[in-house]
Design a protein around this nucleic acid. Structure first.
Lengths: 219, 219
DNA sequence: ACAAAAGTGTTCGATATACACCCATGT
DNA sequence: ACATGGGTGTATATCGAACACTTTTGT
């Protein structure tokens, strides 16, 4: 199994977690965190176990991506990879200072050469992430509990070429009625202070279950 | 691997191909066509081979659905199923006269008790089919080369409770510019004769590649 | 005062929605 | 003639697209 773990911070953009391989094949190449499923664990538990044992990072969201099974995808023989897509909150990111370590968060626009077919897997995960963010508001899984509207804006912008139109974007997102404005303001920065928002998950699920459509235009 | 094969005919609606199991476990229960992947074949080829050997039916469209891996999903032990969704054209359907045979097309609203977790797999496939039909016009994969607008209408109606509004539906679908009106008319039926249409796949792909959005409203 | 970032309203065009009658054939 | 299924047009409401200036703070 392999996992594509994404995280987001305003300063760094969207990043993917990679591990440097310690053994052949592709020794010293960067690769997705991965490993073998144990006999009696579910797929989800297996992915969690592998991720945590390899990287000490816990995913806050996880979903099956695709199963990759080309006969020649692994030089060791017939190995099928059930790939998962996951999201980790930025507060969990405190390892890996630079690329010289064993683990590193790479910006999705600057992925190095990877082992196996892992580049393809990441591409597939990015496509899925995009869809989920635009259609299912998965964006809120990528933000901290309190966030600024500019965080959201930058998150969306890091997934497409043309930036969103701020006024329309704001209007539409707020119209869903799933954000709570906090009294808190961010200070100590230049410019007008921004308002913090919180995601109301309960309301979101309520609407979702009633078939409400969270599609965001201008994607 | 297991396959959920769908087909459609105006008279019968959307149906799923099921096989009666010949061996334990779940002997004599209905189940999805399935089998084991061979060492050196790709997932797609494996599914095709299994489907054809079990049922003599060739799928005209195929796509990976999901991998099901609960530890207890198979009483024989840890068996993971990579499930595919497929579509067969109605002209391929000429076996299986009734439910007493080995193979039968069951209407998706009248699925019997199934072996393993196959009911879940079918549910997942139906959700995916719905999405694909509404957003990617997968509907045309389910129709014959020549078809009537009423075929389309009935196909859409068999996936949702409220019927589509005929005038709006027609207007929207025609606005995509991917249908060609044929000179042919259907005869020998009561009522005003209907016009045959043909799907222009080339135009469809052209538009698709330019990011055209084939979303159909009122879903 | 100025630079930097946050916030806001309106107009216009496109498209989804709602709705009811006429048409062409077989019987 | 009538029953059956096929085909069509228009008016209204909603929503997406486009667009530029004001506000509030730090320096």
């Amino acid at each position: 199994m392999d996992v594509v773990v994404f995280s987001f911070r305003q300063a760094e953009g969207i990043r993917v977690l990679l591990c440097k391989r310690r053994s052949e094949p592709f020794k010293h190449r960067w690769a997705l965190p991965g490993g073998s499923l144990q006999y009696d664990e579910s797929l989800e538990r297996g992915v969690q176990r592998i991720l945590e044992s390899r990287t000490m990072i816990k995913a806050t969201y996880m979903e099956q991506l695709h199963t990759f099974g080309k006969p020649d995808r692994d030089p060791r023989g017939r190995i099928i990879s059930i790939a998962y897509m996951a999201i980790a909150k930025p507060e969990r990111i405190n390892l890996a200072e630079d690329e010289s370590g064993e683990i590193y968060w790479y910006n999705i626009r600057r992925i190095p050469d990877l082992a196996f077919d892992h580049r393809r897997i990441i591409q597939a995960a990015i496509v899925k992430l995009k869809n989920k963010i635009w259609n299912d508001l998965l964006c809120f899984e990528m933000l901290e509990a309190k966030f600024l509207f500019s965080d959201l804006e930058i998150l969306f912008n890091s997934l497409q070429d043309k930036p969103v139109e701020r006024r329309n974007f704001r209007k539409k997102v707020l119209s869903f009625g799933i954000l709570e404005e906090l009294q808190d303001q961010i200070v100590g920065r230049r410019g007008r202070p921004a308002i913090y928002y919180r995601f109301n998950r309960t309301k979101y699920f309520e609407l979702r279950d009633r078939g409400y459509n969270f599609y965001l235009p201008q994607g």
